[in-house]
């Protein structure tokens, strides 16, 4: 049994909130740099450079990468042998507020979705998972709402062809178009229930963007994928999405998405839920293990 105090959790969450918003994820930055090298559309290429410059400037000047520091999501994997002293959830919320205040980030949360009111720092969506062991893994993910607004869910029939699923995912990217800060990272959740598919789509965004030589970021080489497998689908979707000619800032070009990440899960014989959660190019998250 390991004892962890809520103060330690609060401080860790505050630190992660700050890090996630100031320092662009390394895999995202690498993917952007690679896209910059591969992009042929001149203006889109320059815009990709502006995105990279923005990340560098934000880090140097301790400014939020984007003013939309999101409705923060906190993913917690709680080891079953950990004992927490104090109010755990409250510590997470307090940690978020502390980190956001210290970072001079924007107050973007209204406590009542209908009455709205003055935005505050206090608020987060917390997803908790109980795992083996005596550690706590915490991930803070600020998710801007420009791209969150483009989320989609569809309950397919279990007999549906893979083509229909691909069409739905590509259509979701088309619908987002130039509005939600492309180049995107496309998170897809397949299986589970309606709520769980949505969670999987979000979690898919946490997967590291893989890079392969000579291809767009996150595109696995041909020999590594098979028709009908998840990595095959990721590859195919990325290739097709990057033919949409949406491009960085919607200015055209072949960099519409940096990656397509899919998470799959068992589902019911009567259905096939598919959720799409799009991230803008400022895909932010930070993780710590206590």
């Amino acid at each position: 049994m390991k004892i962890i105090t809520v103060k330690k959790i609060e401080n860790a969450v505050a630190q992660l909130a700050r890090e996630a918003n100031l320092f662009l994820r390394k895999d995202v930055l690498t993917a952007l740099k690679k896209s910059y090298r591969l992009e042929k559309n001149k203006r889109s290429k320059l815009f990709l450079k502006a995105i990279i410059d923005n990340a560098v400037y934000a880090r140097k000047e301790k400014l939020a990468i984007c003013q939309d520091t999101g409705l923060p999501l906190v993913f917690i994997e709680l080891g079953q042998d950990v004992r927490i002293l104090g109010d755990f959830k409250q510590a997470v919320i307090k940690g978020i507020a502390l980190g956001y205040r210290k970072g001079n980030f924007r107050e973007s949360i209204v406590s009542d979705p209908l009455l709205r009111g003055k935005p505050v720092y206090q608020g987060a969506v917390i997803h908790m998972d109980i795992v083996k062991g005596s550690k706590i893994k915490i991930t803070v993910m600020p998710k801007g709402f420009g791209c969150e607004n483009k989320s989609q869910l569809k309950m397919f029939l279990p007999t549906v062809g893979i083509g229909e699923i691909k069409k739905f995912i590509i259509e979701a990217v088309k619908t987002a178009g130039p509005d939600a800060c492309p180049p995107y990272v496309v998170g897809v959740g397949i299986g589970g229930t309606a709520d769980y598919a949505s969670l999987l789509a979000k979690k898919a965004l946490l997967k590291r963007i893989k890079l392969q030589r000579g291809l767009s970021p996150a595109c696995p080489p041909k020999q590594q994928w098979r028709e009908g497998t998840v990595s095959g689908l990721e590859r195919e979707l990325l290739l097709q999405i990057n033919k949409l000619n949406i491009g960085p800032m919607g200015l055209g070009g072949k960099t519409t998405a940096l990656a397509v990440n899919i998470e799959a899960y068992p589902t019911h014989i009567a259905g096939l839920p598919v959720a799409v959660n799009i991230s803008c190019h400022a895909l932010r998250s930070a993780t710590a293990v206590l």
Binding site: A50, N54, Y57, I65, Q67, R106, E107, S108, P119, M249
Partner: peptide, 28 residues
């Protein structure tokens, strides 16, 4: 169109900022 998602860079071009109305809306 302004450079989307480049808020840190854009802040360089702002020389002055003052409230005109609706301070109760916070960032809005």
């Amino acid at each position: 169109l302004a450079p989307a998602g480049c808020g840190a860079l854009i802040s360089k071009y702002i020389k002055k900022a003052e409230t005109v109305a609706y301070p109760d809306l916070g960032p809005e």
